[in-house]
Design a protein around this nucleic acid. Structure first.
Lengths: 199, 199
DNA sequence: CTTCTCACCTAACAGCTGTTAGGTTGGTTG
DNA sequence: CAACCAACCTAACAGCTGTTAGGTGAGAAG
C-alpha cells in the first residue's frame, strides 16, 4: 500500500505525466499499464510501487486537470471590470494552462465518465465549486445589466463550458493552424455574436 | 463472411442500435461484444453472423452518425434567408436528430478517434463535405456583410462545430433541465453574443 | 418427407488485462 | 563492514478480450 499523495515525489509526478499523456491519446480503456510503463522505460509491475491502481491514476490525473480548470475560473472572478474583461481573462487563463497541462485537462474532460461512481463523487464537490464560480460571473453581469436580454446565467454557463471544452478538443486533436487566433475569435463570438444582423 | 450492408436487414439495424447505445454509454474500449449481445438477448458469437468485427461495427455506427450531421448541414444551406435563419435552421435540425439518433451522433463525436487509420480515412471524405457546407454558410454571410467584423469563416465554423458538439455532450451526460431552452439560448449567444456591452 | 437456409448457440482459442508476491539492484546510513 | 531502504524487475495469476469452427433448431421450398 502507498499513500495517495506522498507529497512531492518527483518520480511520481513523471509517472502521472506519462499516464495523462497516454490516457489523452488512447483513452482510458484503450491504455494498458504496459503502455504507461514503456513510456517511462519501466515494466508495468513497477508502477505499483507508486500507484495504487490504474483507476487511482485516472482519478488523480482528472483531479489535477480539474484543479487547473478551477484555478482559471477563480482567477477570472478576481478580475475587476465588466463581463467582457472577465470572460477574456477566463479564456486567456484557460488557454495558457491548456498549453502546460493540456493532457491533464483533456483527460478530465474526456475520460472522467470512466471513473467509478465513488471517484466521480469525490470530484463532484470541486466541479460544483467551478460551476458556482462561473454562475457568479454571469449573475454579477446580469445584475449590472451586462448580460444580453433573454440569456439566463445557467445557459450562459453551459455555453461557456462548451467553449472551453471545444478549446480542449481542438488542442488534443492535433495542432490547428493559428490556434490562438481561432480561440480569440471564438471568444469574441461568445461575447458579441457571429452575426452582424440584429434580430 | 457477410456483406458490409446487406441492405435493410432489420435485425442488423437492431444490432447496430444496441452497439451504438452501449458505445455511447461505456465508450468503445469499455464495451465488450458480450455487452452488446446481452442487450439483445443473444450470445456474443452470434453477432458475427451480422457483423464482420467489433471495429466494423464502430465504423458503421460512426458513419451513420456522421450522415445525420451531414444531413442537418445540407438542410441548413438549402434554407433561404440571412445567417441568423440558416444557423437557427441548422441547430434546430441537429437537435431534432439528436433526439432520434443521439447515440449514433454521440459515438461519432466521441469515439471516432478509436477507429483504425483506414476507418478514419474512409470517413474523412464526408467530414470534409460537412466542413465545406458550413464554410459555405459563413462565406455567403461574409459576402453579404452578415458576418460580424473580425470573424473569419473558418473560426466561425470551429465555433459552430463546438456548439453542436456541446449539445451532443449535454444530451448524453443525462437529461438537463430545459434542454431545448438552453440550446436555444446557446444559439442566440452564438449569433448575437452573451454580452450587452459593446467592445 | 426431404432439403435448404437463416439465425442463433456452444465451446473453445490465443492473446491481452490489471495486479501481486517475491527477488535484485545500487546507494545511503550506522 | 553490515544493515537498510527505495526503486525497480521477473514471473506468474486469474479473468477477460475478440473471434472462430462447428453444431442446432425452426421454418420455408421443392
Amino acid at each position: 500500500m502507498n499513500d495517495q499523495t506522498p507529497l512531492s515525489s518527483s518520480r511520481r509526478q513523471e509517472i502521472l505525466d506519462a499516464a495523462a499523456a497516454v490516457f489523452a491519446q488512447k483513452g482510458y480503456h484503450g491504455t494498458g499499464m504496459r503502455d504507461i510503463a514503456e513510456r517511462l522505460g519501466m515494466k508495468a509491475g513497477s508502477l505499483y510501487f507508486h500507484l495504487a491502481s490504474k483507476d487511482a491514476a485516472l482519478e488523480e490525473v482528472c483531479a489535477a486537470g480539474l484543479q487547473s480548470v478551477l484555478r482559471a475560473a477563480e482567477h477570472a472572478v478576481g478580475v475587476a471590470g465588466d463581463l467582457n474583461r472577465r470572460i477574456r481573462a477566463l479564456v486567456e487563463s484557460q488557454v495558457r494552462d491548456l498549453k502546460v497541462h493540456g493532457d491533464y485537462i483533456s483527460v478530465f474532460v474526456h475520460e472522467r465518465r470512466q471513473l467509478t461512481a465513488q471517484g466521480q463523487k469525490r470530484l463532484s464537490e470541486v466541479t460544483r465549486k467551478h460551476s458556482a464560480l462561473l454562475d457568479r460571473i454571469f449573475e454579477d453581469a446580469r445584475a449590472k445589466g451586462e448580460l444580453a436580454d433573454g440569456i439566463e446565467p445557467r445557459a450562459a454557463r453551459y455555453a461557456m463550458v462548451g467553449l472551453l471544452r471545444n478549446f480542449t478538443q481542438l488542442y488534443v486533436e492535433g495542432p490547428i493552424r493559428d490556434f490562438d487566433a481561432v480561440a480569440a475569435q471564438a471568444t469574441e463570438i461568445f461575447l458579441s455574436g457571429a452575426s452582424s444582423v440584429r434580430g
